[in-house]
């Protein structure tokens, strides 16, 4: 058992991670087409990525969509978590299930639903439309992390704050928010990562001026199979791993402690 369990874990990790890592050597290929393993090495594709202006533009779009998505998800997800965990709702369990549902639904179904709506609203191919779409699938992550944070301490803290003279906003600012801050930050990072990696909604909702990195990769995959794609994918992989690392570190950190008077 002692040996079997770690070895099994290691095998599972290799199985999960290796396919993603294969793009790293592919991005340093000296060939004109994606090949594995590459016969020789070069860094030319990292240069090519910068000369073709569509890559930096797609990267900028990914941030212009990802950051507002994260902020909107944080606002809505936090409010939803407060309502479900503290609100004494009659249908709290049902509300909770509905709130996480978009995360479990196939994105293509959500995309097909949102497409005509955005068309009607005139939001198709603009930033706002895809931000709204991404928020639908990113918000559940904030809801989950913040709801979990709210469940780590008793409601009596907020009741105590109120008897001490704190109105609803003061109680939130001085008590609730410091207690759930980590959940909010982690949820926000996960929401950003979700938007940053999302392809299906972006395919339906973005246009030539607003296309994101995943969409551009997808388009280029269909047209040319140059190692530039692998170079971009490697950078995205690195960035995603960095986000994950930040999340992991934050979740291990102890809850905040205040300064002495």
């Amino acid at each position: 058992m002692r040996v079997a369990l770690p070895s099994f874990t290691a095998l599972a990790l290799v199985y999960l991670v290796l396919p993603s890592l294969i793009i790293v050597p592919m991005s340093f290929s000296n060939q004109l087409y994606l090949t594995f393993p590459p016969p020789g090495w070069s860094t030319q594709w990292y240069g090519a990525m910068q000369t073709d202006l569509s890559w930096p533009q797609a990267a900028a779009n990914s941030f212009l969509i990802g950051v507002p998505t994260a902020l909107l998800s944080v606002a809505l997800g936090t409010l939803a978590a407060l309502a479900v965990v503290r609100g004494r709702l009659r249908f709290a369990a049902a509300a909770s299930a509905l709130l996480v549902a978009p995360m479990l639904l196939p994105h293509v179904i959500i995309a097909i639903g949102l497409y005509p709506v955005m068309l009607d609203l005139g939001l198709l191919r603009g930033y706002l439309g895809v931000i709204i779409g991404h928020t639908v699938v990113a918000m559940p992550l904030v809801f989950i992390t913040v709801a979990a944070a709210l469940r780590t301490y008793s409601e009596s803290l907020e009741l105590a704050a109120m008897t001490c003279g704190a109105g609803p906003w003061s109680a939130f600012r001085h008590i609730t928010f410091p207690m759930i801050r980590m959940g909010v930050v982690v949820g926000g990072l996960l929401a950003f990562a979700t938007s940053f990696d999302e392809l299906m909604l972006s395919l339906f909702l973005t246009g030539p001026g607003t296309r994101t990195l995943p969409r551009l990769i997808w388009e280029q995959m269909n047209a040319y199979l140059t190692p530039t794609i692998a170079a971009v994918a490697t950078l995205i992989l690195g960035f995603s791993l960095l986000l994950l690392a930040v999340v992991a570190v934050l979740q291990r950190a102890r809850p905040v402690e205040s300064q002495a008077p």
Binding site: L157, T163, P178
Partner: peptide, 19 residues
């Protein structure tokens, strides 16, 4: 928050992020 009544809770309900 406007009643000006003091309350002590069973689980103390001290704010853990404050000294």
């Amino acid at each position: 928050y406007r009643r000006n009544i003091g309350m002590v809770f069973q689980n103390y309900a001290l704010f853990p992020h404050m000294v």
